[in-house]
Amino acid sequence: MASRRMETKPVITCLKTLLIVYSFVFWITGAILLAVGLWGKFMLGPYISLIADNSTNAPYVLIGTGTTIIVFGLFGCFATCRGSPWMLKLYAMFLSLVFLAELVAGISGFVFRHEIKGTFLRTYNEAVLNYNAQDERSLAVDNVQRSLRCCGVLNYTSWFSSVYFPANGIPPSCCANTSDCNSSDLRNATIAPSKVHQQGCYELVTSFIETNMGIIAGVTFGIAFSQLIGMLLACCLSRFITANQYEMV
């Protein structure tokens, strides 16, 4: 019996080392998710409001998920060092739940990418039609047009139907050259087209989604399947410790 314990001790030590390393990496992914969630909440809130029909909880989901992963990452390190079978099994169960959640999220994002594009077209068009240069969505439209150097939904003609156009013309955020673009030009339907960006914002945003959704889904699947490695490590370590009645000091 003692000989068997001596033979399995290096295996347990190896599994313990691998699981601690994995838990540390897992903890880092949680910190990244938390940072992205906070960034999305404070920096991308207006942009997200243009994509969703209603106020979205996506940043809060990322913040909550990141915080939970950080806590369980630390728990995984503690469970590994403590050598507690039930803690390791609980950690493995949590990793399996994370795996399923990320797998569903990745598949949903890839499968429903066309619906996301359709929703963006509808909500962005509504934001342009009801633009007033003051509310959150209007400011988000301005930010999109300035940063992407675009104008309107499909092109600058989208603004001709806006409630903002009769009195104010096309918004200044559409100007191709701010030094050569004044309010009187923007109110003139004949002169304005030569002063603003010609490309619509919808095409730029959706081409980005189409180009990068596959990459995003692939990264999500990769991270999801990495949870299986941690789950297997935790289960194997728990089994070895239970079978050999090995306790880590």
Rank of each mutant, 00 (worst) to 15 (best):
L19Y: 04
T68F: 13
G109H: 02
A101E: 12
G109S: 08
I70Y: 07
I241L: 12
G40A: 13
T206L: 05
M213Y: 07
A189I: 12
Y246L: 10
L95C: 11
L38G: 08
F78M: 09
V21T: 14
I70R: 06
D53I: 08
A2C: 15
V249G: 12
T123D: 05
F78K: 06
L139R: 12
F78G: 03
P59V: 07
A79R: 09
I229V: 15
L62I: 07
M93C: 09
L148K: 05
N212C: 04
F160H: 03
E203V: 10
L186M: 06
L15P: 00
G214Y: 14
K16P: 02
L233H: 08
A58C: 04
I229P: 14
C150D: 05
Q245Y: 10
L121Q: 13
T157E: 05
N57T: 13
I223R: 06
I191H: 01
R187I: 05
F240M: 13
S161C: 04
A217W: 10
F99Q: 12
G200P: 03
G152T: 00
L237K: 06
R4H: 10
W27A: 11
V144P: 05
V219Y: 11
S194P: 02
S161F: 09
A217Y: 06
F99C: 14
G76Q: 03
L38K: 03
A224E: 09
A2I: 14
A133F: 03
K9T: 11
T178N: 09
T68P: 07
M43E: 15
L232K: 02
F42I: 08
M213N: 02
L228F: 12
L97E: 09
A2D: 12
M1V: 13
L18A: 15
L33W: 04
M6V: 09
N57D: 15
T29V: 15
I63R: 02
L74P: 04
I116S: 11
M43G: 10
M213I: 14
A79E: 03
S226C: 15
L38Q: 03
T242H: 11
R187S: 11
G40P: 06
F78P: 00
G118E: 12
R239N: 14
L233Y: 08
T56Y: 02
C14E: 07
